[in-house]
C-alpha cells in the first residue's frame, strides 16, 4: 500500500517550544529551529528531508493533537 502523503504547517509565532510534537512524531519529521521567535522560544520546525528509511509526514495529526498551542495545521492528500 502506498503510504499517505501529508504536510504540516507550524505557526512559529504560536509555538512555545515544548516539543511535545517532536516527541510524538512517528517519522521524526519535526525538529527544533535554531532561530528564536518573538516570544524568545526556539519553535518547532518541519524537517523537510526524508530519513534513511524514507519516512515522511503522513498527515497522521499526532503532532497537532498534542500541541498545546494549536500551532500546527495538518494537510493530507
Amino acid at each position: 500500500m502506498k503510504p499517505k502523503k501529508g504536510r504540516i504547517v507550524i505557526d512559529s509565532r504560536l509555538c512555545k517550544g515544548c516539543y511535545l510534537c517532536v516527541s510524538v512524531c512517528p517519522n521524526e519529521c519535526i525538529g527544533i529551529s535554531e532561530e528564536s521567535n518573538e516570544k524568545g522560544y526556539h519553535p518547532a520546525k518541519v524537517i523537510g528531508t526524508k530519513d534513511a528509511n524514507d519516512r515522511a509526514c503522513t498527515g497522521c495529526t499526532l503532532c497537532a493533537v498534542i500541541c498545546p498551542d494549536i500551532a500546527i495545521e495538518v494537510y493530507r492528500g
Binding site: 504536510r7 494549536i70 500546527i72 495545521e73 495538518v74 493530507r76 492528500g77
Partner: peptide, 13 residues
C-alpha cells in the same frame, strides 16, 4: 487534492 485535516476549532478564538 490536498485536504486540511486538522486546524483550530471554530469555538477557539
Amino acid at each position: 487534492m490536498e485536504e486540511l485535516v486538522f486546524t483550530r476549532p471554530r469555538y477557539i478564538k
